[in-house]
């Protein structure tokens, strides 16, 4: 599957690697694919996740306690492509990547078959100035975020740097802050749609159920569910709950 301008109603799920248990990563990914999810964002945990609300903070904390590190994650993902065919993006903060080595990180992503990365605190200037060639050499797409406050000029710039899709935040907020899509968001979604960007865009933050998913995908090529799914993982024996959760979203 390729995410492109003609994609329609794509569903992506975010979950934190190493949560609820250290070795749940691949099982969760497989179950999500089997349940009909179109692509995945696998989070690698960080001690100071400033862009995240309490739910994802908690999952990160538990994952770290469970012993999750980038090294462990890449070991777990060694056979990723034997089990999972849909696109996979790694999402996390910059410091663990910096310590792993940006080049090692991009190479490891390529080796295990990860398609791209979302690193919210690696800004455009630093990306272009210091790291862009490394990502490109390894064919790893780095995904940038756009918020309702992002200027048109900057959105154009992001569009020109993007090689995959643009991650549109439904509101300027931490993850899980609003589990609804606000009405004024629709004006902003429309504004972005009218800009006729080169790249497809996917909406995230505030997508939690069928209603918000449909609202978002009326404008965007797809939508991402994070916090609402991580809450499912907090329940007993979560794998069995996944098919229904996904089924309800995509019905």
């Amino acid at each position: 599957m390729q995410i492109n301008k003609n994609s329609n109603g794509l569903l992506s799920i975010y979950f934190t690697a190493g949560y609820p248990t250290l070795n749940s990563t691949i099982e969760i990914a497989k179950t999500l694919e089997q349940s009909g999810v179109d692509f995945l964002e696998i989070g690698f945990p960080y001690s100071d996740p400033v862009a995240d609300g309490p739910t994802i903070q908690h999952s990160s904390e538990v994952a770290l306690k469970n012993g999750m590190t980038l090294k462990v994650l890449f070991d777990q993902l060694k056979d990723l492509r034997k089990h999972v065919k849909i696109p996979v993006y790694l999402m996390g903060y910059f410091n663990p990547v910096l310590q792993f080595g940006v080049e090692n990180f991009c190479k490891a992503c390529r080796e295990v078959g990860v398609n791209g990365t979302i690193i919210p605190d690696l800004p455009i200037y630093e990306y272009e100035e210091l790291y862009k060639p490394i990502f490109e050499e390894n064919k790893i797409s780095n995904i940038f975020l756009v918020t309702p406050q992002t200027s048109e000029e900057r959105i154009r710039k992001i569009d020109s740097l993007t090689t995959n899709f643009i991650y549109l935040l439904s509101s300027n907020a931490t993850t899980g802050k609003h589990l609804e899509v606000k009405n004024q968001s629709e004006d902003y979604f429309n504004r972005i749609k009218q800009m006729n960007l080169t790249n497809p865009f996917i909406i995230g933050f505030g997508i939690s159920n069928k209603e918000t998913f449909e609202k978002a995908t009326a404008y965007a090529n797809g939508a991402i569910v994070g916090t609402a799914f991580v809450k499912i993982l907090a329940q007993n024996n979560p794998l069995r709950l996944i098919p229904d959760f996904i089924g309800d979203l995509k019905k």
């Binding site: 919210p120 605190d121 800004p123 200037y125 756009v146 918020t147 406050q149 200027s151 900057r154 935040l169």
Partner: peptide, 19 residues
């Protein structure tokens, strides 16, 4: 003028803080 002291400094912030 880029916000750096030698290799240190910069503005490693998520887009939500950018404006």
């Amino acid at each position: 003028d880029k916000g750096y002291y030698g290799p240190f400094g910069g503005a490693y912030i998520p887009e939500m803080l950018y404006p």
